[in-house]
Each structure stands twice: as C-alpha cells, then as structure tokens.
Simulated assay, not measured.
Amino acid sequence: MSTTTTSPRLKTSAMIASFADPGQRTSSAPFGHALAALAETDRRVVGLSADLSKYTDMHVFAKAHPERFFQMGMAEQLLYGTAAGMAETGLVPFASTYSVFAARRAYDFICLDIAEPNLNVNIVGGLPGLTTGYGPSHQATEDVAIFRGMPNLTIVDPCDALDIEQAVPQLAAHDGPTYLRLLRGNVPMVLDEYDYTFELGKAKVLRPGADVVLISSGLMTMRALQAAEALAAHHLDVSVVHTPTIKPFDEATVLAEIDTPRLAVTLENHTVVGGLFETVASAVVRRGLGKRVVPIGLPDAFLDAGALPTLHERYGLATTSIVDRVLSELRRDDTA
C-alpha cells in the first residue's frame, strides 16, 4: 500500500474547460483526490479507466496508488466486465470513462455483469449533460434517462466539489452498483456555505422561501442558488432543494416542499425526458397532489458544439435564463 506524500497537490488537466464562473472558488480534481484519500484507509478500493484517466481526474488516484490502478484502453465493455470480476473477489472498483460511453456503449455489460448480481461497482461518468462543447458525441444529455430503468443502480448527480468529496466514501460503502455524474477539472465549491452534508439517498433544503421552490440536481443547484439571490431583487423569496441522488429518490423531502401554493420548478443538466423532472412529476402524480411542475432542462434534441457559456445561454441553463423563466411563469399564474 502506498504512503501519503507531501508533494504538491496534483492538478487536473489544463485541457479541461471549467463551467465555474469567473472568480468563483474551485477545487481541482476533487474526485481523484477523494478516491486517493479513501484508498489510504480501504485496501479494497481500486481504480480503472478506459484511456481517460487524465480527463476523469482518475490520474490523481493512479499516481497515489499505481499498484491499484488499471488502464483498460478504449474498451468500455472490457472496463466494466473487468470491474465486475474485481467486485466478485471483494474489491471495490471505481471505473471511469465519459458518460456517453458508459451509457451508450457498455449498457448491456453494466446491466447483466454488474446490476443484475448487485455488485459494488462504481461507474464514474465524465461530461454529464452540457459540461462540454464537443457536441452530441460527447454530451451525455440522456444518461440518466438511460440508466434510471436499470434495477439496483443508484444514480448520483453532485452539485460541486464538496458533494463529490463526501459522496465517494459513501458510494464505496454502498451495497450495489452506483453511477456518479462526474464534475471534473476545476469544480466550483458552493455547498459549504449552506451548512450542507451529502447523504446518499437524501435531498436537502438549502434555503427556505415563501414564493417559489426550485428543485435541482447537479450543477443546476449552483445555478438555482444564484437565481434565488437574483430573484430577491424582484422581491421574491425563493427556496432551493438539492436532490443529489436521483435514484432512489427522496420523495418525502421533495414532495413536502412541492405540496404548497408556491410555484414549483425543476432544474437539471439533462434532457427534460427521463431525468429529474419526470422523476418529480411521476411522484407528484402517484401521490395525487394535482400540482403543476415547471421543467427547466435541456431540450429533447442533439445539441450544438461550442463554448460552454454560449451553450448554457442558448439552452436555458444560465442563471439569467432561469430568472427570466421563473418571472414568466409567475406572470402566467397571475393572469390565469
């Protein structure tokens, strides 16, 4: 087992674009550092990657624990088949690639080799939703929709570096497979200002509000908090509920916040088909609440390539777009 060194903290790849706002506090490669730290105390932890360790921050783990890192090449089916075999022997593998490759190329291997026997394999997917400008080949806008129907699979969509750092040991301790929508590179640090701790399977009310409730996951929780601050200038009191675990879903917490006269809005870095919005909407219908829920998310379309700020503006994920949508929906309710 390798020992902890005092060398400078290993950084993320300079080629990775960050969705952080200018001047925002960030943490470099939080997943890689959290996994390396966990492996210091848990000898079962191993890391694998499909030729993308540097671009999923797995290179931090590989440098700290080279004897427990396995580079599988550009072969995602082999990656997850191997991870399944390791889990069968009692190891706890974290296997990273891009989300599109895990969801689209390796689905059957993940389903039958990992999920059906309920093995402790942690699927780490980089570039979830609109976190890259590379276009449809790399933008995993439908990964949650693909994976939600897989039995036994837990799905986590973290907001920031704190979420990731606290999620990693809980994913390792969880019985059964997990899918982490990885935020890589220089990841914003947001939730430490809200007395927040990550709990697998739990949603958290980050701030209360009497007029509007925003239910969000992933990086959209950061945007929801920013929108809540901006909407205060319009004399609106906005609540934000962060739902980092998409499956299993914390219906009790979320529905308690929705079952009020407030405007309810979901925000997700994912197509509005099959993700957080439909998870919330189905829970509302099954509970018989009769409540309208407004979705903010990506369209059911293949998205453009380009710079992230431009794309977030174009597809409605920017803070200003959220503010405009909330104000528009409130005006609609006033005239209804």
Rank of each mutant, 00 (worst) to 15 (best):
E257H: 01
P248H: 07
K204D: 13
H234W: 02
E199F: 06
L255K: 03
T243N: 04
M220L: 15
L206D: 07
E251H: 11
I215N: 04
S217Q: 14
Y196M: 11
V240I: 06
A203Y: 06
G209V: 00
A227Y: 03
T253E: 04
R223W: 07
A233V: 00
V241C: 11
E229H: 10
I258M: 05
G209I: 00
R207N: 12
K202Y: 03
V241K: 01
P261M: 13
Y196I: 12
A227L: 01
S217C: 15
T221Y: 03
T221M: 03
A252R: 14
L206R: 03
A256S: 15
T243S: 15
L255W: 03
H242S: 14
R223T: 09
V213S: 06
P261D: 13
T260A: 06
L219K: 12
V254K: 00
K247M: 04
D237N: 12
I246D: 00
A230N: 08
G218H: 10
K202E: 07
T266Q: 06
R262E: 04
I258A: 01
T266L: 11
Y196A: 05
A233N: 13
R223D: 10
L263I: 01
K202M: 01
A210W: 01
A227C: 00
L225P: 01
R223Q: 14
E199N: 14
K247A: 11
E199L: 11
V241Q: 02
T221I: 04
D237F: 00
A252T: 15
V238L: 07
K247R: 15
T260E: 02
D250P: 04
G209H: 13
P261H: 08
I215W: 04
R262V: 00
T266A: 07
V265M: 09
T245S: 13
G209N: 12
A203P: 00
T260D: 03
E229W: 02
D250F: 11
E257M: 02
A252H: 13
L231R: 02
V205I: 15
L225S: 05
S239R: 14
P261N: 07
G209K: 11
T221S: 08
E257W: 01
Q226W: 05
E257A: 12
H242L: 05
V240A: 06
M222E: 14
G218P: 09
Q226K: 09
L206W: 07
